[in-house]
Design a binder for these strands. Sequence first.
DNA 1: TAAAGTCAAAAGTCAAGGAAAGTCAAAAGT
DNA 2: ACTTTTGACTTTCCTTGACTTTTGACTTTA
Lengths: 151, 151
Amino acid sequence: MSAVSDSIERFIIELLSESNDIELRRNQLAQYFGCSPSQINYVLTTRFSPEKGYLITSKRGGGGHITIARIQTDKQELLYSLISGGIGDSLDKGRAKSIIQRLYNEKIVSLREAHLLWAAMEDSALLPHAACDKQRAVTLKRMLTTLLKEE
Amino acid sequence: MSAVSDSIERFIIELLSESNDIELRRNQLAQYFGCSPSQINYVLTTRFSPEKGYLITSKRGGGGHITIARIQTDKQELLYSLISGGIGDSLDKGRAKSIIQRLYNEKIVSLREAHLLWAAMEDSALLPHAACDKQRAVTLKRMLTTLLKEE
DNA sequence: TAAAGTCAAAAGTCAAGGAAAGTCAAAAGT
DNA sequence: ACTTTTGACTTTCCTTGACTTTTGACTTTA
């Protein structure tokens, strides 16, 4: 069924719903889920990236730990920073998804709107061309700009 | 002799009569029907296309799966007719605008959503002008299709 | 006793391998 | 002729393990 990584992700999100930042031991968590410790890193980098609105800090050695914090952002500020620099000139599907996910998490767009944004990011919605990623970047920025203007 | 594809189709339709939205593993299903996995794709593309009123999403890799969702066609006939025929293969800016205007008038999309749709319809410097209208048609259809998915 | 050295216990990195779905064209039915 | 079916190949995502780096606690030494 659903992969172990998904369970770990849900677990962490659950913890984060209690408080804004959490601290955990990598090995302990790995043992709890019966997986290798480095899989924790995999989950963190793929699902809790800065792009998705999370900040990871950690400490090695004795008494080491990992801290995961949700980034607090002003909505306008986030939109603006995405448009002017955050997105850049080229945007692959993975990053597009992360960004849209975050806009939804931060309640900047509704679920419906997120789906609209995502639909415009699909390869099948773009030209079959090498410049696909560039196209994506331009389109997303254009769409976000309209959101910015409205409020 | 009724083809295996027909059985698979009936099977899926049966599942969809229970819930509006099902998730299945491709390999498992293929094994169940004693056919090759890629035949599942064949069935999905020939019998469960958006034009026929279905939406397919999937994930690869470990824990991967395919989800099939039935589209609500009764309540949203306008969307449906636009997607399957109304928009066609090519769409200039004027037609795009009037379609979006109509969607808003009919209260199928909010003002914000209309703006998002419109933003994705703008000409982009990156696109070769000749292909522009085709691009627009594909993108708009893609976006409307996702709206159908939600109830 | 304070600086330096040692060690084990963390976490990090990365590449290889595995698991699942996607694609496409050729073969096989009808 | 047209639809089905298959299999080889591709792409995407997940999992692991071997190796590295960092740290705090403990030990040694002047």
